[in-house]
């Protein structure tokens, strides 16, 4: 099966995207991300005033791995997980909330944001996103893996790694 990571497409994506913008505005955070636990970025938004973020791929894979490692630590002690996932540096902080079993909502903020607000609005956004995800989203889009698709991918693989000998 194709796994549409977090069933997010069409109208529900638009709604979540708007929610992320709202979260940025209200919390004064710099970046918000939805990260798949496999380490992929599902959605991301940036405050207009924030500088260019570091590599989102690196960020997503490290956040997902960090989360998984912490969960594994909690389980060693018979816990189902740790409640608060906050990292704070001198200039930048990160707050992580679970969206469901497959994805996380991540808020990154600098010293201009108050942690209390970040937490409150992130938690609120989680509830709202969960509601959107539970709504009927209609038919999932499909992909067509036709002859053309096969030929194109083969050509791209050759292009990247050199043609087969």
């Amino acid at each position: 099966m194709l796994q549409p990571s977090l069933e997010l497409y069409g109208e529900s994506f638009e709604k979540v995207d708007a929610l992320l913008d709202d979260l940025l505005a209200k919390s004064h955070a710099q970046y918000v991300l939805i990260v798949d636990l496999k380490g992929f970025v599902i959605a991301h938004n940036k405050a207009l005033w924030a500088p260019k973020p570091p590599s989102l791929d690196s960020l997503a894979t490290l956040i997902a791995s960090n989360y998984s490692a912490n969960l594994a630590i909690a389980k060693l002690f018979g816990e189902t997980g740790f409640k608060e996932m906050i990292q704070q540096g001198d200039r930048v902080g990160m707050y992580v909330e679970e969206l469901d079993e497959t994805a996380l909502l991540v808020t990154l903020f600098d010293t201009t944001a108050a942690l209390g607000r970040v937490k409150m609005f992130t938690k609120k956004a989680v509830t709202e996103i969960q509601t959107i995800l539970s709504e009927n989203k209609g038919e999932a889009p499909t992909m067509n893996f036709d002859e053309n698709w096969h030929n194109s991918t083969r050509a791209l693989i050759d292009g990247l790694f050199g043609p087969s000998k």
Partner: peptide
């Protein structure tokens, strides 16, 4: 298992 992101129009594979 591959992750398809219809909104960002991406297919991601993990090797």
């Amino acid at each position: 298992m591959s992750t398809i992101n219809f909104s960002a129009r991406e297919i991601n594979f993990k090797i």
